[in-house]
Simulated scan of single mutants.
Amino acid sequence: MMDYAIGPISGCHINPAVTIAMLANGKTPPKDAVIYIVVQCIGAVIASALLLLILTGNPAYNIAANGLGQSGYGSASLGGYSVVSCFIAELVLTFIFLMVIFSATSKAAPAGFAGIAIGLGLFIIHLFGIMVSGASANPARSLGPALLVGGTALGQLWLYIVAPVIGAIIAALVWKHLFRNGAALG
């Protein structure tokens, strides 16, 4: 939905990992990338604060007990997955997500359908990843809740910044060196 809502404004840059991949591929100028990332992080904190405001409308809600949907590994992972499992999951899920983005927005892709492919791709990686790592694949999405929840979420935030950025850069390099206009090089 956001691709269609704000795509014409910013290319729908709401994920620092995506912005970094686009920077690595020369699709986003460095000045714009810095501005996008700063605004993405501010937006994530504001969104998390709004979510907290909504949740506190329920007298049974407790941020320490219920959190804000923050990502985590070990005992903070919904499935109890290790730091290594979560790191690999975040890296691979972000890589897949970026490959979908590059493919859906390439010149070879049908015009006007990128948002559908990207949204479906994001949905599918979340189906797999939520139980493992929280399926962030977006450093800003992890930053907002971690700052407000604190504690373990803040201590584990590094993984949800580093792994998605590495996955995004690998996707950018794979796309740049193995694909041209959406077709594999022969």
Rank of each mutant, 00 (worst) to 15 (best):
D3T: 15
D3R: 09
D3M: 08
Y4R: 14
I6H: 04
P8L: 03
I9C: 12
I9R: 13
I9W: 13
I9Q: 10
S10C: 13
S10T: 15
S10N: 14
H13Q: 12
I14E: 00
N15C: 04
N15W: 00
N15F: 07
P16Y: 01
A17G: 09
I20K: 01
L23Q: 05
A24F: 06
N25D: 13
N25E: 14
G26Q: 11
G26S: 08
P29V: 05
K31R: 12
D32P: 04
A33L: 11
V34C: 10
Y36M: 08
V39D: 01
A44G: 05
A47I: 11
S48R: 10
A49Y: 10
A49S: 09
L50F: 15
L53K: 10
L53M: 15
I54K: 13
L55V: 12
L55D: 03
G57N: 07
P59V: 08
A60M: 09
A60D: 04
N62W: 02
I63D: 06
A64D: 10
A64M: 07
N66K: 02
G67Y: 10
G67R: 02
L68A: 03
Q70S: 11
G74E: 07
S75F: 13
A76I: 06
S77N: 02
G79C: 14
Y81F: 15
S82D: 12
V83M: 05
V83H: 02
V84C: 10
S85A: 15
C86I: 14
C86F: 08
I88N: 03
I88E: 02
A89P: 00
A89G: 04
E90R: 04
L91C: 12
V92Y: 00
